[in-house]
Amino acid sequence: MNKLYRSRTNSRLTGLCGGLAEWMGFSPTFIRLAVVFAALCSFGTVLLIYFIASLIIPKEPYGNYDFHNPYHNY
């Protein structure tokens, strides 16, 4: 079972969307668009949850690179 981490390699703001995308096997762009859409529809509640999750979910350890995952950026 994969463990959820914030991504070091696929990070824009905190790496949370990149980490979720790696964990679920989706495109990071799809996750980011879904978060932006949900934030607009929820009047910012999703942004609060996003930043709380960014504080709770740990950063990906160094050397934990998966060469079989096509969503990692170099």
Rank of each mutant, 00 (worst) to 15 (best):
P58R: 06
E22Q: 12
G44F: 11
N69M: 09
G44H: 10
P58H: 04
L20V: 13
Y71V: 12
T9P: 00
H68Q: 13
S11N: 08
I52Y: 06
Y5Q: 01
S54E: 02
Y62M: 14
K59E: 09
M1S: 13
S42F: 07
M1R: 15
A53M: 12
M24I: 14
H72Y: 14
S11Q: 14
R6L: 14
F43G: 03
K59P: 03
F37Y: 11
L13R: 13
H72K: 12
N10A: 10
K59H: 07
A34Q: 04
Y62D: 14
I31S: 01
F67H: 14
N10M: 10
R32K: 14
S7C: 12
A21W: 08
G44N: 07
Y5S: 03
L16M: 08
N64R: 15
T9R: 05
N2L: 14
G63C: 04
Y5A: 05
F43M: 13
R6M: 15
Y71C: 06
R12M: 12
P70H: 04
K59A: 11
R6W: 04
L40M: 15
F67E: 10
G44Q: 07
A53G: 00
N69E: 07
G44M: 10
V46F: 04
L20D: 01
F26P: 01
W23Y: 15
P58F: 06
F37D: 01
T9C: 05
L20C: 05
S42T: 15
H72W: 12
D66T: 03
P61F: 10
A39W: 11
Y50F: 15
S7W: 05
L48W: 12
I52E: 01
S42H: 04
P61S: 03
T45S: 06
E22M: 10
Y74N: 10
Y74G: 00
V35H: 02
H68Y: 10
N10Y: 04
I57Y: 02
L4E: 00
A34H: 03
S7R: 00
M1T: 11
G44K: 08
N64Y: 10
N64E: 12
I56F: 05
T45I: 15
A21V: 11
F30K: 14
R32Q: 11
G44Y: 12
G44A: 08
F26L: 15
G18M: 07
I49W: 06
S27I: 05
L55V: 06
R12Q: 03
V46M: 05
A38T: 10
T9W: 05
L20M: 13
L55N: 02
L47N: 07
F26D: 01
S7E: 03
P61G: 02
L4Y: 08
A34V: 09
I52A: 07
N10R: 15
L20S: 00
G19F: 11
Y50G: 05
P61Q: 03
G44V: 09
F43K: 01
C17F: 08
I56C: 03
S54F: 02
L55E: 05
